[in-house]
């Protein structure tokens, strides 16, 4: 069964890149959001298994969003997709409970590798 994926990123280009890449890797993109607030709303209705998460977004940033999503489903797998420029935010995100980290800009191979790494845990 395909894993359900939600993409959270304020960049349209990044969203479609992730969508395109992971659709080919047995993942069903059930929702995508451009800010944290929308992400939380869509999360409740679509119940994804995996979330890719940007950190700097308007209306509720990634850190807050991770916190909110983990409150709803503590078992959620989150891949942070963010620019490396702000290392401290990425570290924060991992402390908040994100399990993976992918640095922008990334290639399709980087993304699939990061997702496989993220799911290979259990």
């Amino acid at each position: 069964m395909a894993l359900k994926l939600m993409i959270v990123d304020d960049s349209n280009i990044i969203r479609s890149k992730i969508n395109r890449t992971l659709s080919q890797h047995n993942m069903e993109v059930v929702a995508s959001a451009s800010n944290g607030e929308d992400a939380v709303k869509l999360f409740t209705t679509h119940k994804p298994d995996v979330v890719t998460m940007d950190l700097t977004m308007p209306r509720m940033d990634g850190l807050e969003c991770i916190r909110a999503l983990r409150k709803i489903n503590p078992g959620i797998r989150i891949l942070v997709v963010s620019a490396l420029a702000d290392k401290s935010t990425a570290i924060q995100a991992l402390k908040e409970g994100a399990q993976g980290f992918l640095c922008k800009p990334f290639s399709e191979a980087d993304l699939t590798e990061a997702i496989e790494e993220l799911l290979g845990d259990d």
Binding site: K87, A90, I91, Q92, K95, F101
Partner: peptide, 20 residues
């Protein structure tokens, strides 16, 4: 923060290395 994260064992070392 980074050192604290490394001292926790639930985060992969390889993953955090890029955040050093």
């Amino acid at each position: 923060e980074y050192i604290e994260l490394l001292l926790r064992h639930d985060v992969k070392e390889k993953l955090v290395a890029s955040l050093n």
